[in-house]
Structure formats: C-alpha cells, structure tokens
Amino acid sequence: MSRSERHRLSSLHDVELASLAASGDRQAFGELVRRHGSAVRALLRRMGVNAAEADDLAQDAFIAAFESIADFRGEGAFGAWVKKIAARVCMRRAQKDKRLRARLEANETPETPAVVDPGRRMDLDEALRGLADAERLCVSLCYGAGLSHAEAAEALNLPLGTVKSHVKRGLDKLKARLAPEGEAMEGQRGNG
C-alpha cells in the first residue's frame, strides 16, 4: 500500500472504513485492524488467554468480522462490535479446547494475589490478576466485551445466576483494589 493511500485511509472514520471494507476493500479493513487490534488482543489477555493464543484468537475474530462486516451498521462503535465477536470466538474455541476452557473457567483465586499498596494507583491488568479465573472472565466479558449478563451466560454455557455472582464478587474485589484509581479519576474530572 502506498504512503498516500495509507494516509487517506488513516484520515477516514471507522464507519467509512467499514463501508469500504463491506465493498471488498481489504486495505480499508487493514486500517481498522491497525486501530483496534491492540484493544481486542488486550481484552482476550484480560479474559485470561495467554498472549500467543490471544493473538491467534484476535486474528480469527478479525477474519470473522470481515466476513460479516455488512452486518455492522455503524450504530455502535466498531471497536465494541469487534470485541463482542472476539469474546464469542474465544468462547467457541473454549467449547472445543478443554484445556483453554479449564484455564478460563477455573474457580480458583491466584496463589499470589496482587498486593495492594494503599495510596498507589493500580492498573486494571494488575487488579484483574487478583481475581479468580472465572470472576475475571465474567467481568471481562461484561465490562470489556460489553456482553449483557445473559449473553455472557449463554457464551459460557453457565447459569445466569452463576455469572451474576462471579461478576458481583469480581466487581467487589476490583472496587477494593482500584479505589485509589477511582478517586484519582474523580479528582481529574473535578479539575477538568
């Protein structure tokens, strides 16, 4: 792709790129991958998938997104749409791959929980490491991929109540760990 073509694509909005991609423009879709690839890979890693497998799943998710790009009507953000696809691709893979499913849904608290140093800002990845695998997966699906509790329950093939309780416990732990972060954010808003 020429530099001018890349420059032209980089100046377009996601919806315009998606529309070009729907007409078969693979370069336009490549620009969407460049913009949202990191977010999708980060989400899969946050769900508990290892880095190499997350990259593999993210590729599958983008291929699936290209196949169904005509369904993207631009009503929501492209990033959110592709994250939902990635979460579902991951869950489908987990249905077939027992090893992946076991890793994602193990109901164990990590042996070395993240240490909370009061007053220090903790990032989300660090805080998520302190959650049990199932809690982290449910929280990531609902707050990272934007699935509803019912959609997450369906994707995980778990009872709705189980998903809700994983989310509740996960949120409580994150709330405790991220308290300095939340306060900092409130402070920023107050100053802005």
């Binding site: 990191s38 977010a39 946050r46 990032d123 989300l124 949120l171 709330k175 991220l178 939340g182």
Partner: peptide
C-alpha cells in the same frame, strides 16, 4: 460509578 470506572479502564487498552 464502580461499573463505569471499570468500563472506562477496559476501554483504555494499551497500544501494543
């Protein structure tokens, strides 16, 4: 507020 903060943190993904 917790839910919104966590959503915001998830949306703030690092550029790899």
């Amino acid at each position: 507020e917790v839910e919104r903060t966590i959503e915001r943190l998830f949306a703030r993904a690092p550029e790899l």
